[in-house]
Nucleic acid binder design. Structure first.
Length: 345
DNA sequence: GCAATTGCATGATTT
DNA sequence: AAAATCATGCAATTG
């Protein structure tokens, strides 16, 4: 599959992969270990559950059977997680948002967690080696260009009105399709994926009302306080796919839900694939996936190609999920591999 | 010739 | 019941 599926961090070397089954696994584990260690109550503060420490992937039973200790680290291992979080927090949503985009508002406690972690590491940050992309954490670049657009580290970063000027054209968060069906008898399911809906159900509440401002753009000024309160910390899930066996097989392609793909990803007018750059939410990596379609009967099948590295790196298996978020950087996205949560009954 | 990749067809499932 | 969607297998192509 050549280089298309490889992350563009260029960081295959550097010894990060020493002893690990994959160059990213060590760092991945280090990230997770750090998050778990620093914030054992993360489940209450993060907008999604963290993967288990002993992940990821098929190699976990061998290479990662022993829990990785927190790395002797600078900021590289933090930059991955906080970068994505930061980008989400400061995201200004373009008006091209799609009809079925979800909203996701970060709660104050989560903003505080992010604030804490960012400040904790603010002076030890260094960019990942050979990081060619403009990862969301690359605040220095953005600040240089537009000091007003990206705030400095601090909790006020998540409460400034100016960061997210546009809330229009979004559907209310609960209106979006959620491909994953809730089992009628969850206890019968050995594992399930915690859906975005679950997460939002658990935390949003009042926030939903505020986002009805979207449907009334003329009222945005009058509702600015409400909008600014939540908009500064929102991000949108534009596509979620529960992975199948064939998705995580070695073929390295993931079938995307047609509805979400057409609604939220760039239109494919021709058969030529489109390269989609997606920042990893957890790792300091920009993935480059080929997005294309096949004719299928009278319809189309939408395919995300060159995904094998992503799947391997995150140790994704059937039942896990691929989640694509909007990225404040035009033409880029944020991607996350979501491990299914084992139900312990 | 082989492995990897790509494209398509078909059948199952869902709407 | 029909149409749409999607998972997956397999043939064709490519390196």
């Amino acid at each position: 599959m050549g280089g298309d599926g490889r992350p563009s961090d260029g960081g295959g070397g550097g010894g990060a992969g020493a002893g690990a089954g994959h160059p990213h696994q060590f760092q991945y584990q280090a990230l997770l270990a750090a998050v778990h260690t620093q914030n054992p109550n993360h489940s209450h503060n993060l907008p999604f559950p963290l993967p288990p420490l002993n992940g990821p992937g098929p190699d976990a039973s061998t290479h990662n059977a022993v829990r990785q200790p927190p790395t002797p680290r600078g900021f590289a291992d933090w930059s991955a997680s906080t970068s994505a979080f930061t980008s989400l927090a400061v995201q200004s949503t373009p008006s091209t948002a799609t009809a079925n985009a979800y909203h996701y508002s970060l709660s104050p406690c989560y903003a505080f967690w992010t604030h804490y972690m960012l400040n904790k590491n603010a002076y030890s940050y260094y960019p990942a080696p050979n990081q060619e992309h403009t990862h969301p954490f690359s605040l220095d670049n953005n600040q240089a260009k537009d000091p007003g657009s990206i705030p400095s580290f601090g909790i006020e970063s998540f409460n400034t009105t100016s960061l997210a000027p546009n809330m229009s054209a979004h559907m209310p968060p609960m209106e979006g399709p959620l491909p994953t069906k809730e089992p009628e008898a969850p206890e019968d399911m050995p594992a399930r994926v915690a859906t975005i809906k679950d997460e939002m159900d658990a935390r949003n509440g009042v926030e939903l009302k505020c986002e009805t401002v979207d449907a009334l753009p003329e009222l945005k000024q009058g509702h600015e306080s409400c909008a600014s309160k939540f908009n500064s910390g929102e991000y949108q899930v534009i596509l979620r796919k529960e992975l199948t066996k064939s998705d995580v097989a070695n073929v390295g392609r993931i079938v995307l839900p047609k509805k979400d793909a057409e609604a939220s990803l760039p239109p494919l007018c021709e058969r030529d694939p489109v390269i989609l750059q997606m920042d990893d939410m957890v790792l300091p990596i920009t993935w480059k996936f080929k997005y294309r379609f096949w004719p299928n009967n009278k319809s189309r099948m939408y395919i995300l190609d060159s995904t094998s590295e992503f799947v391997k790196t995150h140790g994704l298996q059937a039942g896990d999920a691929l989640i694509i978020y909007k990225n404040p950087v035009p033409g880029k996205y944020i991607v996350r591999g979501e491990k299914a949560i084992q139900q312990t009954n």
